[in-house]
Structure formats: structure tokens, C-alpha cells
Amino acid sequence: MGPAILRLVGWAALIAVLVAPQVLLPFIAPLAPAGAPVLYDRASLAALFAAHAAMVAGATVAAVLVAVPLAIVVTRPSGAAYQPLARLLVNLGQTVPPVAVLAITVPLVGFGVWPTCIALFAYGLLPVFEGALAGLRLVPEDVRDSAQGMGLTPGQVLVSAELPLALPQILSGIRVSAIVAMGTATIGSTVAAPGLGEVIIAGLLSDNAAFVAQGGGIVALAAVLMADALAVLERRAARP
């Protein structure tokens, strides 16, 4: 029951910090310079967290909606020729650093949430695509062959055999993508996207380590809890 208790403690801590940030006071007060505020007070941590999580969720969902269908297409016999192209595009998204994506997109879409979401989306495509590709490739040829031989249409083979069997790998790709997005979303604050990055940057600018600790700590805790929750889903999907 160890992991369950740890999980419960983690969630309780996250909720407590968001709802009543003052519980942090005894832990981070020593980090603040003398006379400086210990708790970030320009916006509520809960609101920043919600905005942060919404960006991560939005970008990850968008990445899944693009990368999974793309992986499906390139694993069909008729789409196999596009696999190198798809790989190239998806890799490009991963190669260009999110900061560079921000620099490119801000002039196009302006400051705020959008450039950040685009950067997170581009960065998150690769793990989801590779996970889905690996999962679909792992589906045993015999399963596909017998499914077709029984009279399932290609769409039915996909939905009732290939996707369920590939689900653990697909979820694993989503997990990696979401964790990376959770951390990376903090840079959104450099282009005025609301999020926990704001707290960290405020701390860096005013030399206030207490701000950095609360912003960074919440992001880290949220990333760990999310990774854990997705890993549980993954294990569930992997069971026969």
C-alpha cells in the first residue's frame, strides 16, 4: 500500500498548497531575502496553476489528435510511403527548441497563451508519434491476419485489435509528452502566458528564492503526480 499512500500525500500536498499557500511559509520563509514577501501575491497560485494545466492539457490533446492519426496513416499499406516525411516533420518539432518556436510565433500570433501552446504542441508531437508507431508495429502480424481472415474490415481491425493492443505504447508516449510540456510551459511566462513560470521568473528577477521554490516546486509536484496517474492508466491498458 506504500505507493497508494505516497500518491495520496502528494495530491493532498498539491491541493493544500494551491488552496492555502500559507502552509508553505515555515518551509520557504528562510529562502526569501530579508523584508521581501515570501509568498507570491500578484496572482493566486491556484489560478496560475489552472492556466498552466490548461495549456499543458490543450497542447497535449492537440499533439495526440495530430500524432496518433498520423501514426495510423503511415502504418497503413497505402500510407507507408509517407512515413519518412511524417518522421521528418515530427522530428523537426522536437529539434527546434521551444524558446525558438516562441521567437518565431510571437510575431505571427502575438504574445500570450497561443505561442506557448504552439511551442508545447510542436515539442510534444514526437513522443506521441513514436509511441503510437511503436505500438502499432508491435501488433502481431498473426492477429492482424486472422482478424482480416475472419472478415473484419480494415477499420474494424484498427479499432478492435490494433488500437487496443497499441494503447500501452500510445499512453506511454502521451505521458512523456505531457511531462515535458508541464515543465516547458514555464517558459511561456516570458511571452506573457499566465502560468507558474510567472512565479519562477518573478523570483529570478527579484532574487527571491522563495518564489522560485514555490513556482518550481508546484510544477515539479504536478509533473510527478501526472506522470504517476498516466502510468497507472498505462498499466491498466497493458493488462490482457
Binding site: V143, S146, P164
Partner: peptide, 11 residues
Amino acid sequence: YVIQGIGLFPH
């Protein structure tokens, strides 16, 4: 249709 690998749906 029956094949050597059987191809039962493992899930």
C-alpha cells in the same frame, strides 16, 4: 480461417 500463429486477440 485458421493459421499457424492462431492470432487470437490477446486483449
